[in-house]
């Protein structure tokens, strides 16, 4: 049997977390585990702390509370650049529940929003005051204790976020893969591109070999070719019910090329 506890703020809630307790955010993953009798935890911890649900500009970035829902990201002006990624999560009812913090912990093949955060080089902030780059957080998330309070996403006028979700069922389906890329605005030469893939490994992963190959490349077929040939380096797709690893590797460069070429002239 599972008990439920509520704490006034995130710090107290974090203190109540033990190996057999889980923090309940939107519930889209955790209530499913409760319903299906997951034996790995027997306590749910909640908090109505309003700080967990805030979105605000802060210097050259935007701070998004871990309890902010996908629908909030879509509707808030300061997070408009992330709305395509937030829209990629579930159907409307799921987006009314699913949270930013939860998406960072969502196992494969979920985590489309976390993929966008990874391409944006966001940082993950914990209740104990520590902060981790998203990439480091994702790599260590299975063993990392504590409670996420917010993420901080750097915002630059010089770049923009491209996002593409590939699924068999449209408009809502689980990802075969998702791609997020932070690319420079204007001009035809690429630089500082940050490229992240969802559902191409146990967590969202950066495609750093392709990023390097895109440095200084022209945004056209010939310019992209070297990056497309190395796009799978660093990715670790798995077979699942939706697609085989082989298929995912085959189509990853196809969709990346499509997404980048469609972004020309923006």
């Amino acid at each position: 049997m599972v008990s439920v506890e509520s704490y006034a703020n995130a710090r107290e809630a974090a203190a109540a977390l033990t190996p057999t307790a889980r923090y309940l955010g939107g519930g889209t993953l955790l209530m499913r585990a409760v319903n299906y009798g997951d034996q790995s935890f027997d306590r749910l911890v909640r908090s109505p702390d309003p700080a967990l649900r805030m979105i605000q500009r802060e210097g050259d970035g935007v701070v998004i509370g871990a309890g902010v829902r996908m629908v909030d990201v879509i509707n808030h002006a300061d997070t408009a650049f992330l709305s395509a990624a937030a829209r990629g999560v579930g159907g409307p009812a799921v987006r009314n529940a699913a949270t930013v913090g939860g998406n960072l912990l969502a196992p494969h093949p979920y985590g489309d929003f976390a993929t966008a955060l990874l391409a944006m080089e966001a940082s993950v902030h914990m209740a104990d005051g520590t902060a981790h780059p998203v990439e480091a957080f994702l790599a260590a998330r299975d063993s990392m204790p504590g409670l996420i309070t917010h993420v901080r996403v750097p915002v630059s006028q010089a770049s923009r976020l491209l996002f593409m979700k590939v699924s068999r069922v449209k408009p809502k389906g689980v990802s075969l893969l998702s791609i997020a890329a932070s690319v420079p605005r204007g001009g035809s030469r690429l630089s500082g591109v940050r490229l992240a893939f969802g559902a191409m490994g146990p967590t969202p992963l950066r495609a750093k070999a392709a990023e390097a190959a895109l440095e200084g490349a022209n945004l056209d077929e010939a310019g992209l070719a070297p990056a497309l040939s190395v796009v799978n380096e660093g990715l670790a797709p798995a077979d699942d019910a939706l697609a085989s690893a082989w298929y995912r590797r085959e189509v990853a460069p196809v969709y990346l090329k499509r997404m980048l070429l469609e972004a020309r002239g923006w």
């Binding site: 889209t28 499913r32 319903n35 159907g91 799921v94 009314n96």
Partner: peptide
Amino acid sequence: AQGTCGTCTVLIDGEPRLSCITLAQ
């Protein structure tokens, strides 16, 4: 009971929500 089919959809304060993955309390 896992938030994928939508047949349990109800409105909570006017928003569509999946009642099977909503904590009742």
